[in-house]
């Protein structure tokens, strides 16, 4: 088991193993088979950052290169899912979801409800998300709240390679539409990943760090940032618990409430913009269900209510840093 893999390679391995296990699993996306500008060479790019590199030659009948039309191929993937395939559509960046949103939120998310539970739409839409890649406002957003808002969609945003492989396999085997969001600044992060396939159930947060003074609830890139803050705070005698939600829909509020009942203090850390976010959702739930346990007001650490800046200096300030997270934790401690 002790083999380390990057998150990017964990995604590749999950796709490879699932396409091998089940021939109805297919991939659709831009430049996943050939490669624009590469003289028609097969498997030239493996998608925008090479995530699916090497898969085409193993599964030539299960991979489809698509035109630069997200609305067309995401719609096709959803249609294929309703007809018995298990498509994984790769969208380069979550920011492009806007052009195919009707297919996602008005069609895929609604079929099970509108056809009396008889229709299943086992589609996965993978996309990169998040800031820090110097890719400006249209390629850097953390749009988790938009998809989490819509009933009928499952939303996943993992923080490490182990979870990524198990959650992606679960997403492919799941019979509902899943929005699978991969933080591009975590692609290189490595951890132990079993070679064998495994599935991690949705709706189960993981406790990334146990602690007794303050609970941080977060997901994605903010998990390593929160863990870094927790290390700093440990030296000050503040013992922080870090909860990694892993899936935002369904969401594991039980683990959050249980932790807050132990610590009495909550800091919600969310890379998304502050209004109507995962942070506000968690805060509201805790305020409603565990108000009596709180010893201090809830703190939220989020991006500001502005687009992601292109200036590297400003972008670094935009993303919640370990320092900002630590400051919020200290505030709940009355420091």
């Amino acid at each position: 088991m002790a083999r380390t893999l990057s998150m990017k390679d964990a995604i590749n391995e999950a796709l490879d193993q699932e396409m091998t296990r089940d021939p109805t699993v297919i991939m659709m996306g831009e430049d996943i088979v050939g490669g624009a500008g590469a003289a028609g060479e097969d498997d030239a790019w493996g998608g925008v950052l090479g995530v699916s590199k090497g898969l085409y030659h193993k599964h030539p009948k299960q991979m489809i290169d698509t035109p630069l039309s997200e609305s067309a191929y995401v719609g096709a993937a959803i249609g294929a899912a309703t007809c018995g395939l298990r498509p994984v559509a790769e969208l380069m960046f979550i920011d492009f979801m806007g052009v195919c949103l009707d297919q996602i939120y008005n069609q895929a998310a609604k079929f099970r409800y509108m056809f009396g539970g008889k229709a299943e739409t086992p589609v996965v839409i993978r996309a990169m998300c998040g800031a820090g890649f110097r890719a400006a406002a249209q390629h850097s957003q953390m749009l988790t709240p938009i998809f989490t808002h819509i009933p009928g969609l499952k939303v996943v945003c993992p923080s490490n390679a182990y979870d990524t492989k198990g959650l992606l396999i679960q997403a492919i085997r799941d019979n509902d539409p899943v929005i699978f969001l991969e933080h591009k600044n975590l692609y290189a992060s490595e951890c132990d990943v079993p070679e064998e396939p495994y599935a991690i159930p949705f709706g189960e947060a993981s406790i990334a760090r146990e602690g007794s003074d303050v609970t941080i609830v977060t997901y994605g890139l903010m998990v390593p940032n929160s863990l870094a803050a927790a290390e700093t705070l440990k030296k000050e005698g503040i013992d922080v618990e870090v909860i990694d939600l892993r899936t935002l829909s369904p969401i594991d509020m039980d683990t959050v409430i249980e932790s807050v009942e132990n610590t009495g203090r909550l800091v919600c850390v969310d890379e998304a913009n502050p209004r109507c976010s995962i942070a506000t959702d968690i805060s509201a739930n805790v305020a409603q269900d565990a108000f009596g346990a709180l010893k201090a007001p809830i703190e939220m650490v989020t991006a500001p209510h502005s687009p992601v800046p292109f200036s590297p200096a400003l972008e670094d300030l935009y993303i919640p840093s370990p320092d900002r997270i630590a400051a919020a934790v200290r505030k709940t401690m009355g420091a």
């Binding site: 182990y162 079993p194 064998e196 396939p197 495994y198 599935a199 991690i200 993981s206 406790i207």
Partner: peptide, 16 residues
């Protein structure tokens, strides 16, 4: 420990 529980869950979740 938490890590003992997590390690066993990781094992139990392997296919097969």
């Amino acid at each position: 420990s938490r890590s003992m529980v997590d390690d066993l869950l990781k094992y139990k979740r392997l296919d097969g």
